[in-house]
Design a protein around this nucleic acid. Sequence first.
DNA 1: TGTACATCAGTGAACGCGCGTTCACTGATGTAC
DNA 2: TGTACATCAGTGAACGCGCGTTCACTGATGTAC
Lengths: 172, 172
Amino acid sequence: VSASARPYHHGDLRAALLDAADTLLDQGGDGAVSLRECARMAGVSPTAAYRHFADKEALLAALAARHFEAFRDALAPAAASARGRAYVRFALARPGRFRLMFGPLLARAPAHPVLLAAANAAFADLNARTGSRDGALRAWALVHGLAHLLLDRAIPGGEDPEALVARLLGGS
Amino acid sequence: VSASARPYHHGDLRAALLDAADTLLDQGGDGAVSLRECARMAGVSPTAAYRHFADKEALLAALAARHFEAFRDALAPAAASARGRAYVRFALARPGRFRLMFGPLLARAPAHPVLLAAANAAFADLNARTGSRDGALRAWALVHGLAHLLLDRAIPGGEDPEALVARLLGGS
DNA sequence: TGTACATCAGTGAACGCGCGTTCACTGATGTAC
DNA sequence: TGTACATCAGTGAACGCGCGTTCACTGATGTAC
């Protein structure tokens, strides 16, 4: 009746809250994440989260940091030609995460050292691969723009995204 | 005491509401726009907007449509080489508008014919200029990605955005 | 081994907030005769 | 020219909602002697 009454083990509320936030993020996007709903999903009182995070933004920052690390790890092993496709695929598969990571929260990273570090590490990886810095930046912008345009259904024609990406990024 | 008591003239509440939404959008971004605040700014009761828009989304759609038209008109006369720079400059100067236009609302354009038409017209213009369709698409994605990365302060180094854009888009 | 104590994760009530939307209404405008 | 009427833009009260955050608290855990 003690620990097993909760869906998480002793000391893991923090992780449970992040998982809940993740689920909400994937289902309803940025705006669907609320501290209260996370607490509800973790089976805990509305204010329990404040034992683990200073406020809502701190929770989101921790979440974004976690995703930047996973994102970096996922892209690192890919061959240069496949990394662009993987980037876009990630954005299309997990729009909520993508938008959180690259959204307005990013500008507030200086206030959240963990996020700042994770983001910078990921960005450094993205820019380190190819030859010139400007070339890397251009490649990044191209892929990033493609991700956004597909995500927001801005590209007319209703063509299969996967095929389009393969064609546009084929040679890079 | 009749019409002059309001900051708008007879029949112009609709325009006044859109202007108010625009101001909020430019100041606080997407989330800062509320029907109640728009009404407040127009000097009108909280529910007056429903005479002119079916609901909040309809107002936002009308606003986005208006901006797509202006966006298209602003880019049309520019020379091909300058259009990319103008695109990015618009995004940086008016982040709220840019995010509204190219955000999740765009996926709901089919429900708002005016927005759908305006967006498609703008997109057609963007893609019609350059030679091949794929080339145009790539150019668009590059510029769009650059706009987003700069907007979200994702590009490390703190370099002057304007200079960076000029350098990266120089040859296109 | 047993007792006193400090720690601290989680509780629950409460505060104050703003929002979108509905509904019956008022009162000015302009038309039809 | 004057009166009866319909239209319809805007009102204001109300509904129900969920949110972030505070605060004093409880009660289990584990440590020190």
